[in-house]
């Protein structure tokens, strides 16, 4: 299994020469396993993948099955969907998953296609075939076993997902994790090879912005230690953080020695991470 971030930003895209390394598109992450196309989140980052897929749809007449897991309806987690190029082609089939009721999932995404906000009419009027699924406890997608837990956010249901391959590799994606201890997430992340958590705020910023409900970097790393995760990638970067800011924060966290031997890094857009 491999992981590729097409978007790493929280809140709003941050295109800039100062964000070249860590990325400037809102959240979208691809799980690469065999030929399956699996995404978590469909922020604007999805459109850079979409450009590549569109090329193959047009030149190679490829028809794609694309599986998208929705963690919540925050704009930055979904806003790329109306612009995700495969959705303009009849040959594409989008499979969209969430533990929410299908009608809620439809409502939450369909607002993006409102014809006052966009040139479109509705999600179910797009050319691609779009199927929604209410996830039960466990699901098999593209050869992977998928499970989820709620992320304990008060303002909107949010979910973290775990993907296990038949040969024992595992990835957990929960970049909208909240600051308070979440036993279910710790359990889901237990011994995960790669754990993706949120890094919007430092602990000081977290204390000043409690109403936002996102964990601090420090809290995310502590959770990873409790779960005995093998490696952590922090994503969901603040839109004002430049590459140099992220490097400085990372150096401080490493120097603090609070996180023992935990292996961690900040997620970079376009980098492919091996899950070992």
């Amino acid at each position: 299994m491999k992981l590729k971030f097409w978007g790493t930003r929280a809140l709003i895209s941050s295109p800039s020469k100062d964000t070249k390394v860590y990325g400037g598109n809102t959240g979208c992450l691809q799980i690469i396993y065999d030929d399956a196309l699996i995404l978590v989140g469909s922020g604007y980052g999805a459109t850079n993948l979409g450009e590549e897929l569109m090329d193959r749809i047009i030149r190679e007449k490829k028809a794609f099955n694309i599986h998208i897991f929705i963690s919540n309806f925050h704009w930055d987690h979904i806003q790329g969907l109306p612009f995700f190029q495969p959705i303009y082609f009849k040959s594409s089939h989008l499979h969209i998953y969430s533990p929410m009721a299908k009608s809620d999932l439809y409502e939450g995404l369909n607002v993006l296609f409102n014809e006052s906000y966009s040139p479109f009419e509705a999600l179910n009027k797009m050319p691609a075939n779009v199927s929604l699924y209410q996830m039960q406890e466990e699901l098999a997608v593209g050869g992977l076993k998928v499970r989820y837990v709620p992320l304990d956010r008060s303002e909107t249901p949010s979910f973290g997902y775990r993907f296990d391959s038949p040969n024992g590799e595992s990835v957990v994606v929960a970049s909208a994790n909240a600051g308070e201890e979440n036993k279910a997430l710790i359990q889901l992340s237990s011994e995960a090879d790669l754990l993706v958590l949120g890094g919007l705020f430092t602990e000081a910023e977290y204390k000043a912005n409690k109403a936002w409900g996102f964990a601090s970097l420090e809290r995310s790393l502590k959770l990873a230690m409790q779960a005995k995760a093998h490696k952590v990638l922090l994503s969901h970067h603040h839109p004002l953080r430049r590459d140099s800011d992220i490097v400085a924060i990372k150096e401080k966290l490493v120097a603090s020695k609070d996180f023992g031997h935990l292996e961690f890094d900040f997620a970079q857009e376009q980098t492919i991470y091996e899950v070992l």
Binding site: S13, S14, P15, S16, G23, Y44, N48, E269
Partner: peptide, 10 residues
């Protein structure tokens, strides 16, 4: 249409 971030257009 949308904001976008790619090295080729910054």
């Amino acid at each position: 249409s949308r904001p976008t971030h790619k090295n080729s257009l910054l």
